[in-house]
Design a protein around this nucleic acid. Structure first.
Length: 421
DNA sequence: TCTGGGGTCCTAGGACCC
DNA sequence: TCTGGGGTCCTAGGACCC
């Protein structure tokens, strides 16, 4: 049996946690660059503002509905997320973090002590008591069904935030009410394809012939269908799997047309990607760079990418930056207004050692590890910032975050203040 | 004027090998 | 004119997730 605990409107709740005056008001959280809406409070959802609405389309509604708008504040969300996960972890023998605001709990056998339903309420109360945040809880024999239950716990207030289902008849009743597009693992494309075949509810999908599904949609959807039937196919993951890819990409605050500006941006992303790589304690042998114009703009489009294989695996920012710059030498095309670019690292190994070719005389940089760890330490401990000159100082393309709230939980000078008396 | 970022897994097709 | 079968590895692209 699996339980899924998922925070209600997580980012919006993080904001209102330290601003009680915001409660009951519609709250919108914007993406990086203040581009579009990526999280909404219940009140904002009720206004019919969709996920992903561009900020400039939201603007006309702000005054009329008294909407509170925030730039994303990941320092705040990550810190509150850690608190929530710590509480959830303490409530079951086995658990795994699924996303910033969700965790799986293995609740097999818990019903020998208390009902799954009362366990779910216990989870809610504990998370609220320790963090001030609310979670919804879904409990079922497979992860896909637990997801479905968790949706139901949020959709119907009468459930009081907990839906636990073991009885096949009741499971079928719930599936009959769920459109396939809401099933975990069925996205937009597959929904359209299934609808054409006349399959519209989760129950219809669960009742479809399994061989037909496998033949037409592959093993992934086959697994989803089995899970909907109550057969657990996706196990708990106790170990955090090692990353296989690291990406650092951003949209620019202002379009880039000049090659030297693109080089600065790529330099910064390469450095940041290297920092993440070192945090993962990995070395990479594959560096890619991509850049593109805005697909929304009615203007000449360009989408460039290139990769370089390294002879020796590295985690040194200098190697990554150099490779990225060589890629730009190869792929750069002037005459476009680039909107976004990124650096991607692939092909990881836990050490620098790689198969050297017979005449390869590339030796690793001496002192690389020591230098990089000093750079990371300075940057991570808030002692200051140190960076490679290639990325420029206060460049115009830097991302916009004009409505940033304080980092209430991670910076001493931004702690919330309370007035007494 | 203004539309996010960071991941995973699977599959099909090509290169290459015996 | 005739032109196998099977395997591996790699990559690009497509689907999904939060």
């Amino acid at each position: 049996m699996f339980a899924l605990a998922d925070c209600n409107s997580f980012y919006a709740s993080c904001q209102s946690l330290f601003r009680p005056d915001l409660r009951g008001r519609p709250i919108a959280i914007l993406s990086n660059n203040d581009g579009c809406v990526i999280a909404r409070s219940k009140e904002l959802k009720n206004l019919g503002i969709p996920m992903g609405m561009p900020y400039f389309e939201l603007k006309p509604h702000i005054k009329k509905h008294n909407i509170a708008v925030f730039s994303s504040n990941y320092a705040l969300y990550a810190s509150l997320s850690a608190r929530v996960h710590t509480v959830l972890e303490s409530l079951a023998l086995r658990s795994s973090v699924y996303s910033i605001d969700e965790s799986w709990l293995d609740v097999t056998g818990i019903d020998a002590v208390q009902s799954f339903d009362s366990f779910g309420h216990h989870v809610r109360n504990e998370v609220f008591r320790h963090t001030g945040l609310m979670v919804g809880v879904g409990i079922a024999p497979s992860k896909t069904l637990a997801k479905t239950c968790q949706y139901a716990s949020k959709r119907w207030p009468a459930t009081k935030g907990v839906v636990a289902l073991t009885d096949p008849i009741r499971i079928r009743k719930l599936l009959a009410l769920q459109p396939i597009g809401e099933i975990w693992g069925i996205g937009r494309r597959l929904t359209a394809k299934l609808n054409v075949m006349g399959i519209e509810t989760a129950l219809q999908l669960a009742d479809t012939d399994i061989r037909f599904i496998k033949k037409n949609f592959g093993v992934v959807m086959e697994r989803t269908v089995r899970e909907l039937r109550g057969e657990s196919c996706i196990p708990m993951e106790e170990m955090v799997p090692a990353k296989q890819q690291i990406i650092c990409s951003r949209s620019f605050g202002q379009r880039i047309s000049e090659e030297h500006e693109m080089r600065q941006a790529i330099c910064r992303y390469a450095e940041r990607a290297g920092e993440k790589l070192r945090q993962e304690k990995q070395f990479c042998r594959h560096v890619s760079v991509f850049m593109r114009t805005s697909p929304f703009a009615n203007e000449p489009q360009s989408s460039l990418s290139g990769t370089e294989k390294l002879l020796t695996a590295t985690q040194d920012s200098r190697d990554i930056i150099a490779a990225a710059q060589r890629i730009i030498d190869r792929i750069w095309k002037p005459g476009f207004r680039y909107a976004k670019a990124g650096v991607m690292l692939n092909d990881f190994s836990p050490t620098r050692l790689a198969q050297l070719s017979l005449f390869d005389d590339q030796s690793p940089r001496p002192g690389s590890e020591a230098l990089m760890s000093v750079v990371d330490k300075i940057n991570q401990e808030g002692l200051g910032r140190i960076w490679f000159a290639g990325q420029g100082i206060e460049p115009a393309w830097q991302m916009r975050r004009e409505m940033l709230s304080p980092a209430y939980t991670t910076r001493w000078d931004e702690l919330p203040k309370a007035k007494i008396g």
